[in-house]
Design a protein around this nucleic acid. Sequence first.
DNA 1: AGCTCATGGCGAG
DNA 2: TCGCCCTGAGCTG
Length: 269
Amino acid sequence: MPEGHTIHRLAADHLALFSGTRPHPTSPQGRFAESAALLTGKVMHTAEAHGKHLFLGFEGDTWIHIHLGLFGKYALGDTPAPPPTDTIRLRLLTPTAYADLRGPTTCALITDAEKQAVHDRLGPDPLRDDADSDRAFRRIQRSRTTIAALLMDQKIVAGVGNVYRAEVLFRHGIDPYTPGKDLRAAQWQALWDDLVALMREGVRNNRIDTVRPEHTPEAMGRPPRKDDHGGEVYVYRRAAMPCLLCDTEIRTADLAARNLFWCPTCQKS
DNA sequence: AGCTCATGGCGAG
DNA sequence: TCGCCCTGAGCTG
């Protein structure tokens, strides 16, 4: 269950394992079988991510466009590949490496023009060199929608999901219900810079960690906590637990059909 | 065996 | 705003 850092990590992994090769594509699950046949024998020349979208580039104006959605998962590594199961939508296989894709929302062949259309409808991605954070702020400044909802809107910012959304707002003490138009430029700049740093670390470690070293349970003299989603976080999925910094109960609410988490004491600005 | 929930997003109303 | 799509883990019976 991925946010942008996962997808950028997958792009890098695909580059390392498959670029310059002719990976053999199959679709044990079946739904990508026709496309896999069309791709057979083609060289994969690049892999790229924008937000939560992954693009695998093949010779001949052909890309595989992948979006994991909420349930999509990748398993990839060196051969031997595990025996294929009937939920693998796409397997890429070379003599030395494999990549198995399960449960994606999107897995489709597209052209350069179609790929460009995807880029055009996405906002700046904190993990891309071409990102223009001002473009996001101009949209935010004009909006009465809450900053919590705006951060999740991929047209505004691409790649932020429910964990980074909750955590970056906590780290900057921002009330998630602040309307976009009330967010100050300096606040946005700080949020953006922090997203760049946090998400880069997420790519590096392949997990989301947001707790500053001085706030870890060990540093605070508290018992260690266990997160079932990999990393160490302040508020995400910590409803009714005491805030690590002020002991206030972490609150949760539905916001745009997703669970929002925040500390009502630490996040007031 | 069946339910619920999950780091997402789309289209219908 | 709601229902729906994709899968799997962790419960409950």
